[in-house]
Nucleic acid binder design. Sequence first.
DNA 1: TGTAGAAGCCTGCATATGCAGATATCGTCG
DNA 2: CGACGATATCTGCATATGCAGGCTTCTACA
Lengths: 145, 145
Amino acid sequence: MTFGPVPSHVCTAARVRKASRRVSQIYDRELEPYGLTVTQFGLLAQLRAGPGVTIGALAERMVMDATTLSRNLRPLERRSLVLAESDRDDGRVRKLKLTAQGHAALDRALVGWRAAQDHIAAALGAKEMQALNTALDNALDRLAG
Amino acid sequence: MTFGPVPSHVCTAARVRKASRRVSQIYDRELEPYGLTVTQFGLLAQLRAGPGVTIGALAERMVMDATTLSRNLRPLERRSLVLAESDRDDGRVRKLKLTAQGHAALDRALVGWRAAQDHIAAALGAKEMQALNTALDNALDRLAG
DNA sequence: TGTAGAAGCCTGCATATGCAGATATCGTCG
DNA sequence: CGACGATATCTGCATATGCAGGCTTCTACA
């Protein structure tokens, strides 16, 4: 029984997951002095850009299960960086927004984010980074669902 | 104080992490009937390709912390798919290899892996998939360290 | 030979991820 | 108004991820 080439050499999942780990490591290390993980930083940035979003809508935007998002918000709510308040019109949903502390934490952490971004850009070069970003955007678009 | 564009629109981490989640979801669903996650499938494939590897060496190859790999192996050892035996020459290391059951599980799961791979290829097209793989390989190479 | 430093692995802690299933609420249709 | 299906969120379970710190073993050097 032959199965062809060894998966590791052709597998897209292996590549994107390795890249995700490596990139996350870099961002996490740069953000650590500011007390945020890359996940948490991303959530705060999303909430600054679009406050009042529900958990379900934000989860979809983040390509993340709603239960995952629900739990990722826990540490941020505990630290009073994010507020999730019930909606008057629809008792099922919780609408999310940054607190003043959340805005401040995000502002501070932007320094670390820039450092991480620069780290990547320096290693890849502008051209390769552009190619990577485009390929990822394309894949995310076509794999949406 | 101006920080320029909102990170979410320029952030490489956001892209690669979203793509990783989406791709992992696809592979995990296809592999679920065979009782393996995409992480576990990847580890079995690596051990088939290069048996006798140590935890540290495999962790580096997987762009993964050694402690993470150590724990990821736990369920596979518990199910007797992977064997980690001490080395005579160096008492510190554990050398990893597939058991007969591990080989069999990997063989069965290859059907699911192909389905996931085909799913991605159908959605992206051969050209885009090639571009993505190349960009990821390039990034992994330049971000090695 | 004995000891200091390095190397490899592990445990404890915290967060990240998703599925199955439970609960509460909403909207609709009779 | 009441029941039913759809929607939004949450809990329980299992795995995934990495850092700090600890233990054991090896290596090199005095």
